[in-house]
C-alpha cells in the first residue's frame, strides 16, 4: 500500500535566519576572593543564560556549598551524606566541600540565631577562622537573617577577613547600612536581598551603592522558594532582572545569587522520609532531585552563583554547568 505517490508540491523554503537579540547591556563582573585566597569571577554576561550565539558568557554560574556552625536545622538525610564527623566541624565540612568541587564556601552562622543557641561574636569569628584556615576558596558569610544579630556579628567578621573580598549577607530593605559600611571598610562584597520584587531589588542596589559600595562589589539575591514552593516566582524574577540588565539598566546589571540548596532542604519533600505518599518516590532520590531541579531551574533563569547543600547535587550541577557552557 506504500507505493510511493510523491508529494506533488515543489517547496520553496524560506531561508532560516537566526534572529539575534542585540542587547546593549552587560552584567558587571564581580571578583570574589583574592589576597591569598583563590579568586573566582562571576557575571559578565552579554546574553541570556548560555545563549552564546548572540553574546558572551565569560564566566559559568559558580557553585557555592553551604556549611553551618549549627547544623541541627538540616535534616538527617542531608547531614548523613557528609558524615557526622564532618558536619560537626565547619572547618572539616568546608574542606570536604572543597574536595568535592565547591568553588565558594557559604558559611551560614546558624548558631547565632536568637531562637537557637544565640551565640555571639566570638563564636562567629571562630567559625569564620576555621573555614578560612581550612580552605583557600573564596568565602561567603551569611548571618542568621535577624537584623540586629546580623549587624552585631558580621561587622567583626568583615575586619577579620579584610581585603579577602568575602561576600557578606544580607543587606535588606531596612538594614543595609551597617553591613554595607563594613563591606566598604574592608573591601568585601555585599549581598543585597529583597523579597521577589524587581523594583525593590533595583531600589536596594541603588541604596547600597549610594552609601559607597561600588556596583562591582554587589551581588543581588532576589530570593527564591524551592521547587514546588514558589520557584515559579523566582524563575520569573531572575529572568526579568537579567533581561533588564541586558537592556542596559545599569543598576540591575549585577550578578544574581540564589540559594536553591538551603531552600530545598527546608521543605517536606527533602526532609521527610516516612509517612509520605508512595507516589513521592524513594526519599534519597526524591530529595536529591528536588535540590537539583531547584538549582537547574534557577541557573537557566539567570543565577550567577548558586548555593547547594548535597554532595551529589554539587557533582551533578557542576557537570551540567560545564556542559551548558559547551565544555
Amino acid at each position: 500500500m506504500l507505493d510511493s505517490i510523491k508529494f506533488k508540491l515543489e517547496v520553496v523554503v524560506p531561508e532560516v535566519e537566526i534572529p539575534k537579540e542585540k542587547w546593549t547591556g552587560r552584567v558587571r563582573e564581580v571578583k570574589i576572593g583574592g589576597k591569598g585566597r583563590k579568586e573566582v569571577v562571576v557575571g559578565g554576561a552579554t546574553a541570556m543564560p548560555f545563549l552564546d550565539f548572540e553574546g558572551e558568557i565569560p564566566n559559568p554560574p559558580r557553585v557555592a556549598v553551604e556549611v553551618r556552625d549549627d547544623p541541627s536545622g538540616f535534616p538527617p538525610g542531608l547531614l548523613s551524606s557528609w558524615g557526622d564527623d564532618v558536619v560537626n566541624d565547619v572547618g572539616s565540612w568546608a574542606k570536604k566541600a572543597a574536595e568535592l568541587g565547591a568553588e565558594i564556601i557559604t558559611l551560614r552562622l546558624t548558631s547565632a540565631h536568637p531562637e537557637g543557641q544565640n551565640t555571639g561574636v566570638e563564636e562567629a569569628k571562630s567559625a569564620v577562622d576555621k573555614v578560612l584556615s581550612a580552605v583557600d576558596l573564596p568565602l561567603m558569610v551569611i548571618g542568621p537573617e535577624i537584623a540586629d544579630k546580623d549587624n552585631e556579628i558580621l561587622v567583626p567578621i568583615a575586619d577579620l577577613a579584610e581585603g579577602q573580598r568575602i561576600v557578606l549577607g544580607n543587606c535588606v530593605e531596612n538594614n543595609y547600612k551597617t553591613i554595607a559600611a563594613a563591606c566598604i571598610a574592608a573591601n568585601h562584597i555585599a549581598i543585597a536581598k529583597t523579597p521577589l520584587d524587581i523594583n525593590l531589588a533595583k531600589q536596594l542596589n541603588v541604596q547600597v551603592s549610594d552609601i559607597g559600595v561600588p556596583l562591582e562589589s554587589i551581588l543581588m539575591d532576589a530570593d527564591m522558594g524551592a521547587l514546588g514552593y514558589g520557584i515559579e516566582y523566582a524563575i520569573s524574577i531572575d529572568e526579568r532582572l537579567k533581561l533588564a540588565a541586558l537592556m542596559g539598566d545599569s543598576v540591575t546589571a549585577v550578578p544574581i545569587i540564589n540559594h536553591p540548596g538551603p531552600e530545598t532542604w527546608r521543605q517536606k519533600e527533602a526532609k521527610v522520609s516516612e509517612g509520605v505518599p508512595e507516589s513521592w518516590g524513594g526519599y534519597d532520590e526524591r530529595a536529591l532531585y528536588w535540590e537539583e531541579l531547584s538549582a537547574t531551574s534557577i541557573i537557566h533563569s539567570g543565577a550567577d552563583v548558586v548555593t547547594l547543600c548535597h554532595p551529589k547535587a554539587v557533582e551533578y550541577i557542576k557537570s551540567m554547568i560545564a556542559k551548558l557552557m559547551g565544555q
Binding site: G228, E269, E278, S279, G281, G282, E285, R286, L293, S297
Partner: peptide, 17 residues
Amino acid sequence: SPAIAYNLLTLRLNVYT
C-alpha cells in the same frame, strides 16, 4: 521512577502556573 515523575510534574506545574 516515582521520584523522577513527582519532581518533573511539580516543576511543570510551577512553570505553567
